[in-house]
Each structure stands twice: as C-alpha cells, then as structure tokens.
Write a protein that binds this DNA or RNA. Structure first.
Length: 415
RNA sequence: GCGAUCGUAGCUCAGUUGGUUAGAGCAUCGGUUUGUGGUACCGAGGGUCGCGGGUUCAAGUCCCGUCGGUCGCCCCA
C-alpha cells in the first residue's frame, strides 16, 4: 500500500487556533475601532499585482525587490507578484481606480503580505499587516494625523509604555541628495575601516551604513555628517511643524537622526515605533512620507504618507484576550429532549445568547464538556423536564441549579 | 544567502558509559456511574525515535549527509 505523505505547510506560513488566533483578531479589532475614530476609510486591494507595481515603486536595488519577492508568471505569461507590502498597491489603485477624485484620501486596510526570507521570531514569509495611508496631502498635519492614529492604536493595545516612537526627517529631494553625497564622501574616505557589509552598501545605498550593526563601524558612523546640516529651510520648517503637532497632542517621541528607510520612495518624515521585547525584530510600526511614489507609478506628483504595522508582532506583545466562551451549553438526555434542545438552542442564539449543545457521551461526559467550554450555565433537558415544560439551569460557577420554564431560560442565563 | 541550536506519541518532555519488548504527564476514547461538571480510580488506542547512509555483536543514544523547526546575521512589519 502506498504511503500517503501528509503535506507540510509552506515554510514561513502559519495556522492559528485558540489564543494565538484570538490575539491576532484582537489586534485587528482594535485597529478597526481606531480607524473609525480617525475617519480612515476601509479599502480592499488585491494580494496579487503586476510585478512592475513593486519593482518601480520600492526601488530596483532594494532587498525586497531584488531577492525577497514572490514573483511568478501567470498562465498568460504576465509577471505577477504577491504583495510584499501594501503601500504600492494602494498607490496603484489610487491611480487606476479613479480615487484621485477623493483626495485627500484617508484609507486603511489589513491583510496578508509575502516576503521570501528566513523565518524567525516575529518574521514570516506570509505575514500580516495593518496599513494606514493619507494620499494627496502634503501638509505636516497629515503626518501628525497618521502618527496619532498609530499612537492611539498602540495605547489601546496596552502597549503605550513598551513602545517608543523614533522619529527622523529625510528632508526634501534636494536635502537628501546633498546629504547622500556628503555621506558617500565621508564613508568612502574611511572605506578601509568599514565592515564588509557596509563597504557593499557604499555604492548601493550609503545612507544604510548609518544603521550598521557592526560595532567597528560605529565610530565612523558617529562622526558622519548629520542630516540637520543639509536640511533646506523648507524641510526644517516641515519637520518642526510635525514635531510641534505631536507635542500638542501629547505624544512622546525621540529624535533618531540615524533612522533611515529601506525603501527608496521615502521623503521628509520617517518613523518607527520600536520595542525591545521582540528580539531582533523590534520594529512594530514603520512608515513615513512618500511624496515621490505615485509619480514613480506614472501618476501626477502626489504627496502621501502612511505606515504599516506587523500584526503578528503586535499580537505577541499584547495581553492575552479573554477566550471566547458560550454563555450556556445545553445538555439533552434522550431523543425527545435532543429535539427540544435543538429548538431551544436556536431560540437562544436568535436572542443573541452564545450557546452550544453537548450531544456526545453519557450525562457525565456532557457535563464535562459543558464545564470545559467555560460556559456560565448548563441547561439540562430530560424527559422529566420536558413533561413539566422546564429545563434545569445550573450555574456552573456556584453549582446552584433550579427548574426554569423553557420560555424563561434566556432571562435565567442572562441573570 | 550565512551562522548557531534542536528534531522521541496529537502536545510538553524523560530515556544512564550504546544493551532485551522506548516511557510519563496532558489530550482523546471506554469504564467505575443510561440524570449532574470543574475532584478520584481502572483500562484502551496512539511511535518506521524527522529521513538516508555509516560504525558496532548491538544505535533513540556515536559519526556523516539531508530535510524540518527555532534563534541570530543580512534585511525588514
């Protein structure tokens, strides 16, 4: 007989049950609540996009595009990619779905994203993000708005104390170019002392040397030119307006002059909400302003800002949500009682009471199941009860039990 | 792509310097009890010890390879 090999999950994907799934959903529920408070419209965008959506917008040389994307040809020979992030797809929809007429547009969504990486704590190949964007607003108030959204979400998740906002500005294009040139010059002059990784970055993206993990690089990094010396007055004013808004709203933040972004499309405000409780994956929310992205997709110049948050990372940090439990479990005994219990069960549920029925095993087993479910009450129905038109309603916490008329079981459970 | 570490029952793990038939707890199912749970007792099912090769009279145990998990590097949410 042939051995059937049970298929294993694709590496870096996960299936969740019980508390893990409850945690995941608690994060999404909090996100949706805060999203409404802030007036961000819910949007849905495809998981699958033409590869060009990402390769053009994220930057061809970024790690995500060059070796982390799930890219393949569909049957028609078109190159398609499972989204590695949300922003580019939303920007594409903004252009191709006529959403420009609603600008400035505040939108939010959540769902799966895919990156071909080695899985580890808080990092998966299929992972899930919350995402919020304001498209078509170049004012610093939009930056503040988006940051306040993230801040309130983290507070509602009970993470206000364990997560800190790190903030930086990357300046406008003129600023960024001048700073980048100065960094190149600085690092190139000391290339011999840099770590091999950082030497690689020198040509590709000297800005990224700033967050090198190699200790030997740190003195060189510390003496590197700082962006503040290159900020145009417009860029400096913009950043000042953002931080003033945060201060006015009472959001604590820290300046992180070496915080840069991996993706090419960022300008001005860049930020990460970070924690030290997740090992190597300390970034829990990350985002910034991406005024150049929509142009890179062939659209008109459109300022925009947004962030993404890792649902799994947040889910690992929050307190365990209370498990979902029925309010009552029906315990029928005998065929006639089972029919009556089915009827009562439907009525209770229509009445908004979370209820279940134990239909396997003898009475002891059924009571065990009722108790194990965490229900507050067991509702026992046997021939004697049927005859009297009642059910025995037992409070599983106190052990008290009394006969209740069938039509009053709902109020007895709620009491 | 690189490094470290771990793979024994559905889950968490024990298994001595290599030694007969690989164990426990939890979970599942049955029973003590065809009408009372969160307590007890009895019993049952469930294992090619990740996979392949090697050393040996003998391998869960030692060696090599491979696959998978975990953690770290890179990068990122």
């Amino acid at each position: 007989m042939a051995q059937i090999q049970t298929p294993q999950p694709v590496r870096g994907t996960q299936s969740m049950l019980g508390e893990e799934a409850d945690r995941f959903h608690a994060v999404v529920a909090a996100f949706d609540r805060v999203r409404r408070l802030f007036g961000f419209k819910r949007v849905e965008v495809p998981v699958l996009e033409p590869t060009a959506v990402f390769s053009r917008s994220l930057g061809e040389t970024t790690d995500v595009v060059s070796n982390e994307m799930y890219t393949f040809e569909d049957r028609g020979g078109d190159s398609v990619t499972l989204r590695p992030e949300f922003t580019a797809g939303i920007a594409r929809a903004y252009l191709s779905e006529g959403w420009q007429q609603y600008a400035p547009l505040k939108v939010a969504t959540h769902g799966a994203a895919f990156r071909y990486e080695r899985p580890q704590k808080g990092r998966f190949r299929q992972f899930h993000q919350l995402d919020a964007e304001i498209i078509g607003a170049g004012e610093p108030q939009a930056d503040v708005e988006v940051l306040l959204f993230a801040d309130q979400l983290l507070r509602e998740l009970g993470l206000g104390k364990t997560v800190v906002l790190k903030l930086n500005t990357l300046g406008d294009p003129a600023t960024r170019q001048a700073w980048r040139d100065a960094l190149y010059e600085h690092f190139n002059a000391r290339a011999a002392d840099l770590s091999p990784d950082s030497r690689d970055r020198l040509e590709r993206n000297p800005v990224r040397i700033l967050d090198s993990k190699a200790h030997g690089d740190w003195p060189i990094v510390d003496s590197a030119p700082v962006i503040d010396d290159f900020l145009t007055s417009e860029a400096a004013d913009f950043f000042a307006a953002v931080t003033a808004g945060l201060d006015a709203a009472g959001v604590r933040w820290e300046r992180a002059p070496r915080l840069v972004r991996g993706l090419d499309y960022y300008r001005h405000t860049a930020f990460e909400f970070m924690t030290d409780t997740l090992g190597a994956q300390g970034t829990v929310v990350a985002g910034g302003r991406y005024d150049g992205l929509i142009e890179a997709l062939g659209g008109p110049h459109t300022p925009a800002i947004g962030w993404a948050a890792g649902i799994e990372r947040l889910a690992m940090m929050i307190d365990a949500p209370p498990p979902e439990q029925p309010e009552a479990v029906l315990v029928p005994l005998g065929e006639a009682a089972e029919k009556a219990a089915t009827k009562l069960l439907a009525e209770l549920r229509r009445d908004g009471i979370a209820a279940d029925m134990a239909y396997r095993g003898n009475m002891k087993k059924r009571m065990q199941r009722a108790a194990a479910s965490g229900a507050g009450h067991a509702v026992i129905l046997g021939d004697a009860e049927l005859e009297a038109g009642v059910a025995q309603v037992k409070d599983l916490a106190t052990g008290e039990q009394r006969a209740v008329a069938l039509e009053l079981v709902n109020t007895a459970i709620r009491a």
